[in-house]
Amino acid sequence: MLTRTGAAMACAAVALVALGVWADYPELVTLGLAAAATLLLAAVWLVAAPHLTVVREVRPHRVFEGTAAQGTLTVTNAGRRRSPPLMVTETVGGHRTTVPVPALATGDSCTVGYALPVTKRGRYLIPPVELGHSDPLRLLHRGQSRGSELVVHVYPRVHPLAMIASGGPQDAEGPTNSSAPLGGAAFHSLREYVPGDDWRRIHWGATARTGTVMARQVVVPDEPRQLVVLDTSAAPYSTASFEDAVRIAASFCVAAESTGLPFRLRTTAAVERESARTALEFLSTVDKDATGRGLAALPDQLRDVVSDTQGVALTVVTGRVEAVTAQLLMLLRPRFLSISLAQLTTGDPVARPRGVLAVSAASSDQFASSWNRLVLR
């Protein structure tokens, strides 16, 4: 590929030859042919590409907003001749980062590190790196793609949040149900043995009576379930406030998991996640839904999470709350252990639903400060 200098040289060669022929000026023709010959020699120089091996690493593959991901590239000259200086180009999210690699003797290696421009939340697909070198006069450039595609997730920034103690203390031998997660310490029932079960949990008495190998099913006992609902409809938000709402939803998910409370993340677009990692990966790419019903869809979406044997604490994250939405939350209040409302708005809240712990803030930082001050007082 022609560089800017090479393109100028090519234009000059054509112009000089044409002008020399038109003016019957052999010296101009000679200069034009010399320029063309220089381009030809540059092309011959690039025919013999260096034999290089490239190892690329990106760490970490998952970062939070405001932290850096680092790329490391190790280039080894596996050829029989000295490799020319190289330019390594990394493309991330439309931004190109160029890193120079010096000339390498046969068998020599060079490791270069560089920061990846992954500052905003998102899922970044990083294509193979491009190794490029030029002729000594920088007239032509040749690039080769090396390596494979990589994916980097940039999670929303997370604030430390205090969790509300709802539903009583966690008890390792408390009540259980069949939907509780496995792996706890509370006995729930007997079931047939399946390969992979711990043989120490085989119930030999039941096995002798039934003729089928039976095992004890131990689960995590019932605990107050945390349900975080992120409103993804477009109406309540500005562009900045939606980003803050995503950060707050992520903060509640991380806070629940760090305190050992089971939780679910749902959106008003009917997407659900049940672990911090999957929730954060989803929240790294979530966007507003211009056609969504927003919190008006809550009564239909929440029917399956409320039961007589399992308490649920609901947290709703949204933008500006109107009076109709406040009334809806008050109607839902008796069905939950508690309802918390995070409002991202720059003005005073339109409505404050009774019986709901509502905190209004203009940013996620202000919300975290106000929430912790209210909960920990």
Results as ranks from 00 to 15, higher is better:
Ser363Gln: 05
Pro195Leu: 07
Gly174Cys: 08
Ile339Lys: 04
Val47Gln: 11
Gly294Met: 03
Leu341Asp: 05
Leu357Val: 14
Arg81His: 09
Val324Gln: 13
Ser370Pro: 01
Gly79Trp: 04
Leu161Pro: 05
Leu190Gln: 03
Ala35Val: 04
Thr53Asn: 09
Arg81Lys: 10
Phe263Val: 00
Thr76Gln: 09
Ser179His: 13
Ala36Phe: 12
Thr268Lys: 01
Ala361Asp: 03
Ala326Asp: 02
Leu116Val: 04
Val321Lys: 01
Arg59Phe: 08
Ala185Trp: 07
Leu16Lys: 00
Asp287Lys: 09
Gly183Leu: 00
Gly311Ile: 10
Ala249Glu: 02
Arg333Ala: 15
Arg266Gly: 15
Ser145Pro: 06
Asp244Tyr: 07
Gly174Ala: 06
Ala250Thr: 01
Ser284Lys: 07
Thr291Trp: 05
His95Gly: 08
Cys110Asn: 10
Pro156His: 05
Phe242Leu: 03
Thr72Asn: 05
Pro224Gln: 12
Val220Lys: 10
Gln366Thr: 09
Met87Lys: 11
Ser370Asn: 09
Ala42His: 01
Val220Arg: 11
Thr30Gly: 15
Asp135Arg: 07
Cys110Tyr: 11
Pro156Ser: 09
Leu28Met: 10
Leu295His: 04
Leu190Asn: 04
Glu57Trp: 05
Ala42Ile: 00
Ala297Ser: 15
Gly66His: 06
Thr38Ile: 10
Val88Cys: 15
Tyr114Val: 10
Thr309Glu: 14
Gly260Ser: 06
Asp197Val: 05
